[in-house]
Amino acid sequence: MTIAAPAPPLAPTPCRIRRVARETRDTFTLELDVAPSPVFRPGQFAMLYAFGVGEVPISYSGDPARSDVTVHTTREVGPVTRALGALRRGATVGCRGPYGAPWPLDDARGHDVVLVAGGIGLAPLRPAVYALAARRAEFGRVAVLYGARGPADVLFARDLERWRSTADIDVHVTVDAGTPTWKGNVGVVTGLIPRAQIDPRRTTALLCGPEVMMRFAAEALRARGVPAASIRLSLERNMKCAVGWCGHCQLGAAFVCKDGPVFGYDVAERLLAMREL
């Protein structure tokens, strides 16, 4: 009998792009054919390699129940994400993963769950919403609070509408800057937190977005009575190896790639408060 050697952790697997979808002006989604498709848990990330350019960590943004495809949504902010965004259907990228600590959905059973997302931060939370919707009866009230820069920057608009109308999920969307045709909320996402119908003492909060936004959101949740340990946030640092070897993503005593990216606010609060980190 021959036993196949496990793939080295830093070796990417070539994956064919099944579909590229432009989400907003500067965000896009890649659907990748991966055989066999890796089993990921909401909140985890993969390393995607644009050959000849470089490798970046990108969260899974698709339905964790789908086994035929992996989905990643990201924003064009640097050479690698711009190169990935320029690829078309049929092109090949390198993939490795999943990596990192997931959202603690099992711990949230029986609790209300509030998800607070800002900008591209909705992408790492979308798998969690899919999972919550699939196991809806296991949770109390579920609320998605989402903030974007402007109406044209609202990500996954159809999903937001579907969750609101069919998945028994309370969805609130706001934009920082409105336009004359925008009829929705205007203001920062933290302003939506008082609207979430939750029992603060029995609530799990999942936060993802710019760090400043998460700090303000975490404090607003705490002001409502949600314990710090029940507030989880996804941190972003300069991840390179994704397996805790290189140290690029070190944050205090933690490696974001291995110990995170999802941390409890009871741990993250003091790390975020240190300028030197």
Binding site: V77, G118, G147, G187, G209, V212
Partner: peptide
């Protein structure tokens, strides 16, 4: 105070940075 903090956050344009 809430209005002031919200205005500061909006000024930061946190989703546009990067």
């Amino acid at each position: 105070e809430q209005g002031l903090q919200a205005a500061r956050l909006q000024l930061l344009d946190v989703y546009g940075a990067g």
